[in-house]
Amino acid sequence: MRNLRVTMTDVDSVVHRFDDVEDGTSLMELGRQNGVAGILGDCGGGCACATCHVYVAQDWYGRTGEPDEIEYAMLDMVADVMGPTSRLGCQVKMRPELDGLEVTVAPAASYWPAASY
Rank of each mutant, 00 (worst) to 15 (best):
T7W: 02
L75I: 10
S116A: 02
C47E: 07
A115R: 11
M77D: 09
N3P: 04
L101Y: 09
H16F: 03
L4F: 02
S86F: 04
C47I: 13
A50K: 04
R17P: 00
T85P: 01
P67A: 14
D42A: 15
T25C: 05
V105D: 03
H53G: 06
R5Q: 13
E66N: 07
T51V: 12
C49P: 06
D19N: 13
W112A: 13
G38Q: 05
C43N: 12
G62I: 07
Q33E: 13
Q58T: 03
L27H: 14
T64E: 03
P96H: 04
W60G: 01
R2K: 15
G31Y: 04
F18Y: 14
A37I: 06
L4I: 05
D23Y: 00
L75C: 11
D59R: 14
R2D: 14
G65E: 10
V92P: 00
I70T: 14
M1N: 04
L27K: 13
G100M: 09
S110N: 09
T7R: 14
E66S: 12
A37M: 10
T51F: 08
I39T: 11
Y111D: 12
C49I: 11
G89T: 11
V36K: 06
A37P: 02
P84S: 15
M94A: 04
I39L: 12
E22T: 10
